[in-house]
Design a binder for these strands. Structure first.
Lengths: 139, 139
DNA sequence: ACAGTCACTCTCCTTTTGGTGCGTATAAAT
DNA sequence: ATTTATACGCACCAAAAGGAGAGTGACTGT
């Protein structure tokens, strides 16, 4: 879909919307959101938040249903983005510990409201889905 | 990855963690989070939140970079989940309007903290990435 | 001697995702 | 008569995501 020319808009409340807030920053924030919004990232964040320091295998078990590949991959990305710190103990068998950094904890805190929202509102969603299917599947 | 047997855990703060809070609800919440965490869903949510009622094409333009297919798909799912309401005007050329429902607005509000977090912290993430690449690419 | 442990990595292979382009209906505008 | 505008649906195809399973390296317990 082509983007054409952006025409200035107003919010429903009448305030003016810049529409070009700062495309650079916006793109950046979108990128971050895109990654952060990832399923496994969120789940691992949660697990680390409530259990503190954990080792690789344990994170996998606590997360549930994640493959080793995805676990490694997600953890790496989180490390790269500064959400977790990775500590390798040069022992055998290998031992690697993961902990949330302050940045990671702050992200987790930000996501907290979303989790709460989901917990509180999931019934509404289910109701909406049923209604939709009836409206749609029946006719 | 097999899940083995879950052994009871304690949080770092010493509180006891049930570890089996309610697998059914947890799975459900995870499903919801998974969908909601979708890139386009979040972006469209944002657009609708700040512009109010919009038509199909305009949402696409304001979202930016989304294909018609994904726009339709995402909008449908959001409608199904009760986040947006879809109003069809039987005119020609067709006119369809989308608005956030109360549920959609509440979700948007929940996500607000994540957006704010991203805006405030994106510099830290970039710094972490640079540090990671130096640590990693150089050696 | 030999299996077991841990934190991976690597190689397939299947599934999913998502983009592109085409078709459509119909009235108003040219 | 032909073009234009709108909100899609559909078919096709390329790319990416992600799972399964095998391999690894070095030590430890039996």
């Amino acid at each position: 879909m082509d983007q054409g020319v952006r025409t200035p808009m107003r919010s429903p409340s009448g305030r003016e919307i810049p529409d070009e807030i700062d495309p650079v920053l916006e793109e950046l924030v979108r990128g971050i959101i895109g990654q952060v919004a990832d399923k496994w990232t969120m789940l691992i964040l949660e697990v680390l938040e409530e259990h503190g320091t954990l080792r690789f295998t344990r994170i996998g078990k606590l997360t549930g249903g994640i493959s080793q590949k995805m676990l490694t991959q997600t953890l790496r990305q989180m490390e790269r983005d500064g959400f977790v710190s990775r500590t390798v103990y040069p022992v055998i068998p290998p031992k690697v510990e993961y902990t949330l950094t302050e940045l990671g904890r702050s992200l987790s805190a930000a996501f907290c409201s979303v989790w709460e929202w989901a917990a509180v509102r999931h019934a509404d969603i289910e109701a909406a889905r049923k209604a939709f299917e009836e409206r749609n599947g029946g006719a």
